[in-house]
Design a protein around this nucleic acid. Structure first.
Lengths: 159, 159
DNA sequence: TATTGTTATACTCTATAACTATA
DNA sequence: TATAGTTATAGAGTATAACAATA
């Protein structure tokens, strides 16, 4: 037990996961109509989001980053490629690897979907007390950025 | 667009779902070793949590409350019943229904698991700025209590 | 031999449909 | 006939294993 612990609040609140997981499910459900309107699936959107920041050098790295499997994203990449939303170019330096990048059209789709989604999210956040809203976003950004190993005492499968 | 909207912060942050869903996954992963130590699966733990507050009158209601399917919880209830952690008594007033309740042993297991889980969660929350932590929990409790319909403009399947 | 991408296969999870009993 | 619980089946989603190309 940590020595600086405030009262462990054993019955004071639900488990974080018990609140966060269903909340995530509701947020996903709110995204689905938007995604459907652009004929896009959740994994496809995840790929577009990940590629926005910077191109990615291998499909395996992309898969890992979005929490998927390298075998699972292939059909997704095929689909995005067919529509001209991403490019898959063989790396000249290592022809085994594929340089993944967003096309201008892909970026346009991504921006359009994301602003619709975030507009809806802002509608929810607007219902919060301003101070809570700020603390919520600060804390969420911090926690979401924590590497997976930080969540368990036990080492998580990580080799 | 809401008239009181602050700047929609289009590129300012990730989508809420994109932060919350992976965070939920990490929190679940952190729970798994604890659950395994009690030879309990996630759905079983969900059932114990739901039964804690008050007994439930039908299995279908229990399933709905924990976001499961009435056919899916049967094996889970069988298992919890076999271990003596829950009771399934036919309702004398309507012998089709099963009154579901926690046994003292079930409550003991639930408490033990939950305090281990929340102890770990407190370790994470302790890393937050105190004001953020408070805002985070306030906002989370509010958002987690929102009914599913509040998340979409479109009516969600609800008949 | 090791790695990237790919395909094929098997497995797990979940939902749909059909059945029994009570009402 | 309708509802609660149960069982059996089918489907979607996911991971594991084997393969081809390149290093």
């Amino acid at each position: 037990m940590p020595d600086n612990a405030p009262p462990p609040a054993p019955a004071g609140r639900q488990d974080l996961a018990a609140m966060i997981v269903p909340l995530g499910r509701n947020l996903i459900n709110a995204e689905l109509p938007v995604l459907r309107a652009h004929d896009l699936a959740m994994w496809g959107y995840s790929v577009l989001l990940r590629l926005d920041d910077e191109p990615v050098r291998t499909q395996a790295a992309l898969a890992r980053d979005i929490g998927a499997d390298k075998t699972r994203i292939i059909a997704i990449l095929d689909d995005l490629d067919d529509r001209g939303w991403i490019r898959r170019q063989p790396d000249p330096d290592d022809r085994r690897a594929r340089l993944l990048s967003l096309t201008p059209e892909g970026r346009r789709v991504r921006d359009s979907v994301q602003s619709a989604i975030q507009e809806n999210e802002e509608r929810l956040l607007a219902r919060l007390d301003p101070a809570d809203r700020k603390g919520f976003l600060n804390a969420l950004q911090f926690l979401a950025a924590l590497p997976a190993e930080e969540f368990t005492d036990e080492p998580v499968a990580d080799d």
